[in-house]
Amino acid sequence: MSVRKLLLKPKLIAQSKTLTGLYPHNPKKQTDIPTAERLLRAFYNFTLNLLQQEIMSLLGLSPFITTWWIIRLRN
């Protein structure tokens, strides 16, 4: 089982939420079943945008810890 299936999908369903902005060719498209690849691509250019903040919040991650982790990976 993946983090996406264990954590993200149930929270999206429980909160009746969808994620918007995961499809570069159609940024207004919404999904409640994001693929792991699309979630990772959302963090390719880590700028702590609204989509990234929403994904981190659904996963229970603090923006501070996630920012620190991304910076460490880049160096």
Rank of each mutant, 00 (worst) to 15 (best):
A36S: 14
I33N: 15
K17T: 02
L51P: 01
G60Y: 13
R4T: 14
T66A: 14
R38T: 12
N75A: 10
F46M: 00
H25M: 06
G60N: 11
S16D: 06
S57E: 14
L48W: 03
N75W: 05
L39C: 15
P63L: 05
S2M: 06
T47V: 13
L73Q: 15
L39W: 03
D32F: 15
A42P: 02
N26A: 15
T20Q: 15
I55G: 01
L51M: 10
M1T: 08
F46H: 02
Q30W: 02
Q52G: 01
W69D: 02
M1I: 09
H25S: 13
L58D: 07
R4P: 00
R72A: 07
L12S: 07
R41N: 15
W69R: 10
P27I: 10
Y44L: 12
I33Y: 14
W68Q: 08
I70R: 05
P34N: 13
T35S: 15
W69K: 08
T66M: 08
L7E: 05
L59T: 04
M1A: 12
E37L: 11
N26R: 10
Q52V: 00
S62Y: 15
L8E: 05
T47R: 13
L40H: 06
Q30R: 13
I65S: 09
I70C: 04
S2F: 08
W68D: 03
N75F: 10
I33R: 13
F64G: 01
Q53T: 03
L50V: 05
I70K: 08
L40M: 10
L61E: 15
R4V: 13
T31D: 06
P34T: 14
L61C: 14
K5G: 00
N75K: 12
A14Q: 08
A42S: 14
N49P: 01
L51S: 09
Q52W: 03
I65F: 15
G60A: 11
L73F: 09
S2G: 08
Y44R: 15
N45C: 04
S16K: 10
P34Y: 07
Y44M: 07
L50S: 13
S57I: 01
K17P: 00
K9I: 15
R4H: 07
L59K: 02
P10G: 14
R74T: 08
N45R: 07
L7I: 11
I55M: 05
G60M: 11
I65M: 04
S2R: 11
T67F: 08
L40I: 05
L8V: 13
I33K: 12
W68G: 01
R41V: 01
D32M: 09
A14I: 00
T35G: 12
P63S: 05
L12E: 04
P63V: 07
Y23P: 00
R74V: 04
L6N: 11
F46P: 00
F46C: 01
